[in-house]
Simulated scan of single mutants.
Amino acid sequence: MRTLRLRDRNLDLSRPIVMGILNRTTDSFFDKGSYYHFDLFLRKADELVVDGADIVDIGGVKAGPGEEITLEAELDRVVPAVQAVAARFDVAISVDTWRSEVLDAVLEVGAHLGNDISGFGDLNYTKVAARYGAGVVATHIRLKPRVPDLNPHYDYLADDVRTFLLDRVERAVQDGVDPHAVVIDAGFDLGKTTSQSLALLGTTQRLVDTGFPVLISASNKGFLGETLGLGVTERRMASICAASIAMLQGASVYRVHDVRGTVKALDTIAALRGHALDSRDHQLSANEA
């Protein structure tokens, strides 16, 4: 059985792993700060767990441009949040941060995974994760988080992204991170045009073939909205479809806003796929009889 090793937790990769997004920000592109206040944050955490989240992904700074959030402010947002979720729920906890100081603090109070959209721009990041036996997400990005990338160019898009991610995996492993605790993410909308993000979604198999679990973070993102002419609050079904397309190519982890809908969709694919395999085995047995 393939597993994702996150400290004291082993997540079974033979089934889809759903990561519920839970932001303690005031300016998230999707929820617009709906869960910044602590009671609302905890209520949403409970909802995500009940709906079937395997991982709760807590973030204190949005990925896109916006008001500067100091290290102290990010720590104030996410450390108490991780403590509260760890105390209340039996769920793996990821923290969406690119700062090694924040990663250190949240791992100290019970987090399991560092979800870094910067591609390990902080050179201490993977060293901190290794010290705790924690997992990391290596994400492709061209510039830095929160810096607009207005004209992204790639010589060979899928190959460039794959090479970048394998380099970051190698760095993490050299720093002592368990290879079975590393996840890779193509980074939709991070230094990619809409057509580039769509192309990467369509070639998810290229990353799956590396042997490392692939995280899909397409939920409600701009490339889906621009493709279909949908506002931020209208992208639910497109997000579920994107996750389903990636699952059919072998992706493992899905970072989403709609946990319940995604779980139902991916479980349906898994069930149909299993039924098809059972039917094929039965047919082979009948032919051999």
Rank of each mutant, 00 (worst) to 15 (best):
P16H: 09
P16C: 02
V18G: 05
M19S: 10
M19D: 04
M19F: 13
L22R: 06
L22V: 13
N23M: 06
R24Q: 05
T25P: 00
T25M: 05
T25H: 10
T25R: 05
T26F: 09
T26E: 05
T26Y: 07
T26H: 07
S28P: 04
S28H: 04
F29Q: 13
D31Q: 15
D31S: 13
D31N: 15
K32C: 10
Y35K: 03
Y36A: 09
F38E: 14
L42I: 14
R43D: 14
R43F: 02
K44Y: 13
K44A: 12
A45E: 11
E47M: 08
E47H: 14
V50F: 12
G52W: 14
G52L: 14
A53Q: 10
A53N: 05
D54I: 01
D54G: 11
D54N: 15
D57M: 07
I58L: 11
I58F: 05
I58C: 07
G59P: 11
G59S: 10
G59T: 04
K62F: 01
A63S: 15
P65S: 10
G66R: 00
E67F: 02
E68I: 05
I69Q: 00
L71W: 03
L71S: 07
E72A: 15
E72H: 08
A73D: 15
E74K: 10
E74M: 07
E74I: 05
E74L: 11
E74A: 07
L75M: 13
D76V: 03
R77F: 13
R77L: 04
V78Q: 03
V78D: 03
V79I: 14
A81V: 10
A81K: 04
V82D: 06
V82Y: 06
V82H: 08
Q83V: 02
Q83S: 14
A84V: 01
V85H: 03
V85C: 09
A86G: 00
A86Y: 07
A87G: 14
A87R: 14
